[in-house]
Design a protein around this nucleic acid. Structure first.
Lengths: 261, 261
DNA sequence: AATGACGGTTCAAATAATGAACCTGAAAAC
DNA sequence: GTTTTCAGGTTCATTATTTGAACCGTCATT
């Protein structure tokens, strides 16, 4: 791994639950020498990608990412492109819906909508990274994405988040196979307790898979009828979202979806 | 300059007017070997900071910046903190107002508001980088920021954007001195033709300057009365925005402002 | 006064970045 | 339809940068 990747990976350590990180903490997290981490952070700081809390000396994400995000969304408005369909589906189902993009090691939420018609709702953080093996989005990506990715994830460590997370590679592979058979992926409380989710793949230009569309509901609200509605909505939604992004669902998968319903 | 900075600087080449850049183009822009640029882009791509247009092979900003921006704004909501005051001032003046943050080489817009009460309005792109020598925000930063920064800018190349841009270091230094005397910075069509702007500094914790508050108006609408109103609004605004960011205006400057009005 | 935790710095040793030249394919020029 | 040009991408010896153990200064705790 090059120096650039090492530095960029540092940025990914920041999250909603960990907005500021000190040097020593970073050293532990990243398993690198303190001096190395320090230099990387300094260079990131020079470029505005991190900044320092002047009192605690802890590091946090810098304003540079804001400008880049503004450029990206202004010139390649993906969020805007998918938002209408995500809103639609959320309204239709009355549940939380999100589109997430594949990003090397995890799924990264792009947009979510939660039209509240129930008293309880699923908590969703657009700034969070969704693990590949513990979310329906991740499993859908593994099922419909490149075989290499699946192998990489199966070979890696499968962290247990809830006690119900699939941590056995063989079991995960089974789930992936089942997802391919079904045409959608399911995850029962793999990442957050009490949350059940279903996801379908989203494709961009040239039939390239780029992410997933997913619905997450409180597990106690889940039943056969609900599941049927969600799967139907996801299939339509995937078509629409893919189309909005200039892509389309591969022929075989679309046929599979049509036959199933 | 380290490898990390070289790679990160590549990201800054993207803008609203240049959303996609090819390898050869990048080589020219950055004055680096093609192989080097290619490797840097590849590593950025692996981490989702750029992605490739599959047909043209051109590079564009990737989705990773979206997630980081979401984390930043969620955990350190600067935009949200300043938006109310910027909106207020824009409503009060009926003109475009923006807060921009200093970012190593330029000013980076954080938030802007334009309450339209006139037929014409200033075009403003939040994704754009504002040059230090050719905008009121930049000059305010030079005037009230560290002396080192001023020297660095004076020693560098001063690009001419409009034909009215200050390109002579001595003249720029004069403008900076005048700004210090006035307590605010002025720029007449230095970056965009027909746009006149005035800016005041914004301070964070421990009296550290972090950016500027600025008003930009069509030059033909500018007059003594208008200028007086803007300067008054900016002084109040700078106090409010600095306060909202947990900072405060340094004593001497605040006294200077109070005496002037 | 001693201890340890933390951010930051140094310099020789190790490793990764670099760039001239090369490859390949597509499109423009002849 | 052949040649030229230009684009993205790749290779390998050379070169320069990254690296990390040890060190420093500061602050809070014992």
């Amino acid at each position: 791994m090059g120096t650039i990747s090492k530095a960029l990976k540092l940025l990914n350590e920041f999250s909603s639950s960990r907005p500021e990180i000190g040097l020593s903490e970073f050293k532990q997290i990243s398993n690198q020498d303190k001096a190395t981490v320090y230099r990387h952070l300094s260079e990131l700081q020079e470029n505005g990608f991190v900044e320092q809390n002047t009192t605690t000396k802890n590091y946090r994400l810098g304003p540079a990412v804001l400008r880049l995000a503004a450029v990206r969304e202004r010139t390649f408005p993906m969020r805007a492109a998918v938002s209408a369909w995500v809103d639609d589906l959320s309204r239709q189902l009355g549940e939380l819906v999100h589109v997430s993009l594949f990003q090397s090691d995890f799924m990264s939420p792009l947009y979510h909508a939660d039209i509240q018609i129930h008293g309880t709702r699923v908590y969703f953080d657009e700034a969070e990274m969704l693990p590949m093996h513990a979310t329906s989005s991740g499993i859908a990506m593994l099922a419909f994405g490149p075989e290499k990715l699946l192998q990489k994830v199966l070979a890696g460590h499968l962290e247990d988040y809830t006690g119900m997370t699939t941590t056995d590679p063989a079991k995960l592979e089974d789930e992936v196979k089942q997802s391919r058979k079904n045409g959608y992926a399911i995850c029962d409380q793999g990442f957050e307790k009490e949350v059940f989710s279903i996801a379908t793949p989203i494709y961009g230009k040239e039939l390239k898979i780029i992410g997933t569309l997913a619905v997450a509901v409180p597990v106690f609200r889940m039943n056969k009828r609900m599941k049927k509605d969600i799967v139907k909505g996801l299939k339509e939604g995937s078509l629409n979202v893919s189309d909005a992004l200039g892509g389309s669902i591969p022929e075989p998968l679309e046929r599979q979806w049509n036959n199933a319903s």
